[in-house]
């Protein structure tokens, strides 16, 4: 995957979570994904806490994209 497509995917995924286009993802936005994704509310809570590196309760695109990069790195190793 090229750098541009990673950036594109990051934006796409961010927008899938930030459906109101606020520019950040709140804990409530994350819980809404419960309907569309095969993850439990607890798992989504866990994902949110993992991505929210500064712990302020909001996920910015920066935090989201570093989580996505970490995921991609893990994929490469395994």
């Amino acid at each position: 995957m090229g750098q541009n497509s990673i950036l594109e995917k990051t934006h796409e995924f961010f927008q899938m979570c930030d459906i109101e286009n606020k520019g950040f993802i709140s804990r409530r936005d994350m819980q809404r994904l419960n309907d569309g994704l095969p993850l439990s509310a607890e798992e989504l809570e866990n994902v949110f806490d993992t991505l929210d590196s500064d712990g302020n309760g909001f996920l910015t695109l920066d935090e989201f994209s570093s989580g996505f990069s970490e995921f991609l790195c893990g994929q490469k190793i395994s």
């Binding site: 796409e12 995924f13 994704l37 798992e43 989504l44 994902v47 989580g67």
Partner: peptide
Amino acid sequence: DPNMKAGAANEGVLANFFNSLLSKKTGAP
């Protein structure tokens, strides 16, 4: 370091999350 351990445990959840987003995007079941 307890934070490192927690991070490792959460890696699987994170992978699960992004994989689900990928499947949702591509329309795979």
